[in-house]
């Protein structure tokens, strides 16, 4: 199973973190620090796998973002790499040519998408279309209420509510 997935920028800023088992907050911060610096220090063309503690770390860079996940010793590294790729494809299709900013400003969406794709550290749905359909389906439920809310939000921002 996958233990966690991290998205971070070339500057080491974490953009998304998903933990699939119970790890304390301190320990998480420590893991993030160690892993980010380790991955950022690697040169291109090196292999995408790293032995790290009891895990195997699989990472890949897409534009300005590193996608990095930790899997168990017995897990399949290549497939983990393709999990990352599939996730990127789904994000890309959803946001339309996704970039780091999309994930910053819509972090909650990124989480929802990830929940449809991976659950409990395992692949839930490997079909890109099915994941997108599920996400769009829940978006459509949001849009029902959107108009009223959007108006209110503008008023509120200007202190008029």
């Amino acid at each position: 199973m996958m233990k966690f997935m991290l998205l971070f920028s070339r500057q080491g800023k974490v953009r998304l973190q998903k933990w699939f088992n119970a790890i304390g907050d301190k320990e998480r911060k420590k893991i993030i620090r160690e892993l980010v610096s380790m991955v950022l220090s690697r040169r291109p063309k090196m292999c995408n796998f790293l032995d790290w503690k009891d895990y195997k770390v699989v990472y890949k860079r897409y534009a300005s973002l590193f996608f990095c996940c930790a899997i168990e010793e017995s897990d399949n590294e290549l497939l983990a790499l393709e999990c990352i790729h599939r996730f990127v494809e789904i994000l890309d299709k959803y946001f339309g040519s996704v970039c780091e900013l999309d994930i910053i400003f819509n972090f909650e969406k990124a989480y929802f998408i990830l929940d449809e794709f991976l659950l409990a550290g395992e692949i839930q749905e490997s079909s890109k279309n099915k994941v997108l359909r599920a996400v769009e389906n829940s978006d459509s439920l949001q849009e029902e209420n959107q108009e009223a809310e959007a108006t209110r939000s503008i008023l509120e921002e200007f202190g008029l509510s």
Partner: peptide, 15 residues
């Protein structure tokens, strides 16, 4: 492309 699909929370984006 920064998109504001679905139900955007303006206050959040501003923040």
């Amino acid at each position: 492309t920064v998109s504001s699909r679905g139900d955007a929370m303006r206050g959040l984006a501003v923040f």
